[in-house]
C-alpha cells in the first residue's frame, strides 16, 4: 500500500521530464520572485518620488550587512554540499553540512536582530521615515523566509534519520536547497539596494 502511495508521489509520474516536486518548487519560486519584485518596485517608486533620500550607509550598518552577506553565501555553499553528500550517500557528511547550514542561518538572524535592536534603541522604527519603512518591510519579509528555511532544514534532518533510503530523499534535499539559494539571491539584491546605493 505504501509502495503505491510513494509511486503516486514519486518522481516517475511526470509528463514533463521534470520531477513534480522540482517543478512545483520552481513555480513557487517564480511567485516568490514576483512578491519581492513588488517590494522592489515600491522601493523604486518611493525613492524616485521622494524629495530626498538618505544614503544607505549613513543610516545602516554596512559591515554587519556585509558579514551577513558572507554568512548567507557560505550557507548556500554548505546546503549544496549537503546535497552533494546526499547524492554520494554519505550520511555523516550530509548531516554535518545540513546543520552547519542551519547554524549559519541562525547566525544571520542573530546579526540581523543586533541590527534591528540597534535601530530600535535609536528610535528608528518603520514609522520613522519612508526609508526605514522600506528597510524594515523588505528585510523583515526576507527574515521570515530565513526562519522558514531553518524550519524546513530542521524538519529535513529529523525526517532523513529514518528515510535515508526514501525515494524522495535526494529530491527533498535538492528542493530545500533551491528555496535556500533563492533566499540568498534576494539578499544579494537587498544588500546593495538598501545599504550601498
Amino acid at each position: 500500500m505504501s509502495a503505491t502511495a510513494t509511486q503516486a508521489l514519486g518522481p516517475s509520474k511526470t509528463t514533463t521530464g521534470i520531477p513534480n516536486g522540482k517543478l512545483g518548487v520552481w513555480l513557487f519560486l517564480t511567485s516568490e520572485v514576483m512578491l519581492f519584485a513588488t517590494l522592489f518596485t515600491s522601493y523604486i517608486v518611493l525613492r524616485m518620488s521622494a524629495p530626498s533620500w538618505p544614503r544607505g550607509w549613513e543610516e545602516l550598518n554596512v559591515p554587519l550587512a556585509a558579514l551577513n552577506t558572507v554568512i548567507l553565501i557560505t550557507s548556500s555553499v554548505t546546503v549544496v554540499l549537503a546535497y552533494a553528500a546526499a547524492c554520494e550517500r554519505d550520511k555523516a557528511k550530509f548531516n554535518a553540512y545540513l546543520w552547519i547550514t542551519i547554524l549559519l542561518a541562525c547566525a544571520f538572524l542573530v546579526v540581523k536582530s543586533f541590527e534591528y535592536g540597534h535601530k530600535f534603541t535609536h528610535h528608528h522604527f518603520p514609522s520613522t521615515s519612508i526609508f526605514f519603512a522600506v528597510y524594515f518591510t523588505t528585510t523583515g519579509l526576507h527574515g521570515l523566509h530565513v526562519i522558514l528555511g531553518i524550519a524546513y532544514f530542521a524538519w529535513l534532518s529529523y525526517w532523513a534519520k529514518d528515510n535515508w533510503d526514501h525515494e524522495l530523499f535526494v529530491g527533498r534535499v535538492e528542493y530545500g536547497g533551491l528555496y535556500w539559494h533563492f533566499v540568498d539571491i534576494v539578499w544579494i539584491f537587498l544588500f546593495p539596494a538598501l545599504y550601498l546605493l
Partner: peptide
C-alpha cells in the same frame, strides 16, 4: 534518479 537530479 540520475535523470531527475543533477550530478553535484
Amino acid at each position: 534518479k540520475a535523470a531527475a537530479h543533477h550530478a553535484p
